[in-house]
Simulated assay, not measured.
Amino acid sequence: MRNVYSWHLGQSVLFVSLFAAFSGSAAWAKDVVVKIGHIAPLSGPQAHYGKDNESGARLAIEDLNKMKIQLEGGTAKFELVAEDDAADPKTGAIVAQKLCDMKVNGIVGHLNSGTTIPASRIYYDCGIPQITPSATTPKVTKQGFESVFRVIAHDGVLGVALAKYAADEMKAKRVVVIDDRTGYGQPLADIFTNQLQAKGVKVLERHYTNDKATDFAAILTSVKRVNPDLIFYGGMDAQAGPMLRQMKQLGIKATLIGGDGICTAELMRLGGDNVGSNVLCAEGGMALSKMPGGPAFEKRYKTQFKRDIQVYAPFVYDAVMTMGMAMKNAKSADPKKYLPKLKDIRHEGVIGTIAFDNAGDVLNAPVTLNSYNAQGKFPVKVVN
């Protein structure tokens, strides 16, 4: 009986040991769901930007999940929570509160400055870190919110670069400024105007439209009378494309110049054969072909989504990856625990090295000035 008892005892000990080992392994292998909110216009005239941004985010989520990042409690399983703000500030605020109520772990977005500014207050109040890949108005990071970051050059840099180029290299003398009165277009136009006037170049007229307009006949008829050699437009490509068509119809031969909002592949479709060397635009960062990871990212993007990158997809990808790396460094997706790591991050991304200054702006962001030819957008000059 003693041998039988010993055998049963040994089997019991072995079973308990195996169960404990299995349980410990299972506990470590347990998925820890990490939700990253992404917000952009997925409907309306700016939907091509939003879908482009979301695609960049999805590529990053794929890569983070391949890394099997270990957080407290188990292996991180990253999920993208994509929302549509229709480029509308009120909708953006509603979506922001929704994501707060869902207790997402981080936010990448919004796309537009006008939606980012009111939403950033909501995220700050509920303690969720936010990285915008494309909201460029300086105000975004000047609100004193320690949880707000940006991975692209802001309009203070873009507007100055455009004004200097217009005055010093284009030798512009007669300039008209138009903007869409949004949180993006109007501040960019203000910065450009102030810098241009400081360089002694006269702004003949200032006109205003909105981000839903497609008919610019009244504005352009007035513009034609003053015969400018340059028209600055603060706004997006959904307006710049039709504007270029109508400029040609009215015989206006001025160069159209603007920020990253018009610096897209879509501009050529919207403006047709009216888009060429008569367009100059600035984007924060290097041209895609010059980014450290740009060519490889572009190839992967086109293979997966069967379309061209607009502007911001690589910035969105890097924003999501940067947030993920901060969580990895903190071994936690708890905003309170990974926020300090985000402030001190140094991540080698597609667009280059990502590190933030005390305000949350990316350090050493270059500006690329671009024009167009039959093959598409191409870089003219890089301003550091």
Score class of each variant (00 low, 15 high):
Gly56Ile: 02
Gly106Ile: 03
Asp237Leu: 04
Gln70Cys: 02
Tyr165Glu: 05
Gly258His: 04
Leu196Tyr: 06
Ala359Pro: 01
Val95Phe: 00
Leu244Ala: 09
Thr137Trp: 13
Lys68Gly: 15
Asp52Phe: 06
Tyr208Ser: 13
Gly293Pro: 13
Gly349Gln: 05
Asp179His: 15
Lys103Asn: 14
Asp318Val: 10
Gln195Gly: 06
Tyr165Thr: 04
Met291Asn: 12
Lys377Thr: 00
Phe232Met: 01
Ala153Met: 01
Arg2Thr: 06
Val383Tyr: 00
Met321Gly: 08
Ser332Asn: 08
Glu348Gly: 09
Cys126Asp: 02
Ala218Thr: 12
Asn364Asp: 15
Phe19Ala: 10
Thr193Cys: 09
Ala167Pro: 07
Glu79Gly: 07
Thr264Asp: 07
Ile191Pro: 01
Pro379Tyr: 08
Val32Ala: 06
Gly234Asp: 03
Pro295Leu: 09
Ala240Pro: 08
Lys337Ala: 03
Val140Asn: 05
Ala166His: 02
Ser134Pro: 10
Ala359Val: 01
Thr193Pro: 11
Ser113Gly: 08
Glu298Tyr: 08
Gly56Ala: 11
Ala60Arg: 08
Asp84Trp: 10
Asp168Asn: 14
Tyr301Val: 07
Ala40Tyr: 05
Pro228Arg: 03
Pro366Met: 14
Thr264Gly: 06
Gln46Pro: 02
Ala359Tyr: 07
Pro45Val: 11
Arg206Ile: 02
Ile117Phe: 08
Leu204His: 04
Lys328His: 01
Lys377Tyr: 06
Phe19His: 05
Ile231Leu: 14
Pro335Trp: 11
Gln70Pro: 06
Gln130Ser: 07
Met327Val: 06
Asn364Ala: 15
Gln186Tyr: 08
Asn3Ile: 15
Asn364His: 15
Arg225Leu: 13
Leu42Arg: 05
Pro118Arg: 08
Phe78Gly: 10
Asn384Gly: 09
Pro340Phe: 07
Asn370Met: 03
Ala282Phe: 05
Thr136Ala: 03
Gly50Trp: 08
Asp334Asn: 12
Tyr317Trp: 07
Ile61Trp: 11
Ala26Arg: 15
Lys343His: 14
Gly360Ile: 02
Tyr317Lys: 06
Ile107Asp: 02
Val4Thr: 09
Gly37Met: 03
Val4Arg: 15
Met243Val: 10
Ala282Asp: 01
Val350Trp: 03
Leu288Arg: 11
Ala86Lys: 15
Lys224His: 13
Ala365Asp: 11
Arg150Met: 06
Thr182Cys: 12
Val157Ala: 09
